[in-house]
Design a protein around this nucleic acid. Structure first.
Length: 368
DNA sequence: CCTCTTCTGAAAGTCCGTCC
DNA sequence: GGACGGACTTTCAGAAGAGG
């Protein structure tokens, strides 16, 4: 077929929609961490060690391990539709004919290499599954490459148990592109674990695994045209919509709204005083950056109702942002909250100012 | 022997009919 | 309309074969 490349499959679009929903609807209970915790509570290693075939794969049963990995954790990285049920190693047929080239009995279909008998084959698959989990728990990812379970499923399982030390992207093509982008020369012998290592090594400190995955996926997901250089965090993204929720960890929807309102208001104030060209929004993950004469001022906005808490939350972040700035420039740091410092909070700030050699200050933006 | 080509099987990826 | 699952297609590495 000529051409013009096939666009995203519905599955992949669905995947992306889910991901962005997950990031934007922070008030929902389904933060990725909740989903991950939920999965790990349901399927600790001990339970997998005792798993039966019925608990592993079944028809019309959302409680199975494979359902959990494929569908109930879809927001953490989709493997749906990429290899059908074959990726599980063994699946239960739903009235369909035995599958050519595979071993079949009256109920199940599985890869011949696992054995001729259903039970032998399943215990083989189970052994591999436990291997994957053990390797993942201990961070021994390179050993996972050789475990004979289809890649797509294998690495999703590995991700779930990896304590977020793997990036949940599983399509070989996409992985290959990302690795190439980061300078790894990829050929058919390049292992997934090697690519994963490159991804992890390139994860910005400011992003968690999930946020980084969303960013990579937005940039590299299969589509008609390669989006050369979609917006990167280095670019000023202009005024932030207060409805447009960007990255963030665990903060609530309300908190996020407040954060954006403060950020926009401060941005407008700075532009009014210094001009638009001096003010950058979300540059290098910094909420606002003011470059004026020989001084760079970083503003980290926090939405907590107490100035001291804002300072506590922002301190680590803003110092990390500051350390990579041009050392020949003067650097000022501002932590920005909604409310002024209360008298009993002032000693906290004074203590930091006295004991750390950074030009750190606090300001508040009145929203009323 | 060595190198290049062809063959082959497994894995990966796509398409599409069925069912709900 | 979406999810599922099976048939079909493509890709790729290794084996086998052909030719020098």
């Amino acid at each position: 077929m000529p051409e013009e490349e096939k666009i995203n499959t519905p599955t992949l679009n669905y995947h992306f929609k889910e991901l962005t929903n997950l990031i934007t609807n922070e008030n929902s209970m389904s933060s990725y961490q909740n989903i991950l915790n939920d999965f790990l509570e349901h399927w600790p290693l001990e339970k997998v060690e005792a798993i039966s075939l019925d608990q592993y794969v079944d028809i019309q049963n959302r409680a199975t391990f494979t359902q959990w990995v494929e569908n109930r954790t879809i927001e953490l990285g989709s493997i749906s539709g990429l290899f059908g049920s074959r990726m599980f190693g063994m699946y239960k047929r739903n009235g369909s004919d035995p599958l050519d080239g595979y071993a079949n009995d009256e109920l199940y279909t599985w890869n011949k290499k696992y054995g001729n008998d259903r039970n032998v084959a399943f215990s083989e698959i189970k052994k591999h599954l436990i291997d994957i989990i053990n390797c993942s728990l201990t961070g021994n990812f390179s050993k996972i490459d050789a475990i004979p379970i289809p890649d797509i499923f294998k690495w999703k399982v590995a991700y779930l148990y990896s304590n977020e030390r793997l990036i949940p992207i599983f399509q070989r093509e996409v992985l290959k592109e990302i690795a190439t982008y980061y300078g790894l020369s990829v050929n058919s012998k390049t292992t997934v674990s090697a690519i994963q290592k490159v991804l992890i090594d390139n994860k910005p400190l400011d992003l968690n695994t999930h946020e980084f995955m969303v960013e990579l996926w937005a940039k590299f997901r299969p589509q008609k045209k390669k989006p050369k250089g979609i917006s990167t965090p280095q670019q000023d993204q202009g005024e932030k919509s207060t409805n447009d929720q960007k990255r963030s960890g665990t903060s609530s929807y309300i908190a996020k709204q407040t954060h954006n309102i403060i950020q926009n208001k401060l941005r407008n104030m700075l532009i009014a005083e210094y001009g638009e060209s001096c003010v950058a929004c979300e540059k290098n993950y910094v909420d606002l950056t003011l470059t004026y004469k020989d001084t760079i001022t970083l503003y980290e906005v926090k939405s907590d109702a107490y100035a001291a808490t804002c300072i506590r939350q922002a301190l680590g972040q803003i110092i990390q942002y500051a350390h990579r700035l041009d050392p020949t420039k003067k650097v000022k740091l501002y932590i920005v909250g909604q409310y002024p410092l209360k008298d009993n909070e002032k000693p906290y700030l004074s203590y930091i100012q006295k004991n750390f050699k950074v030009d750190l200050n606090y300001m508040n933006i009145d929203l009323t």
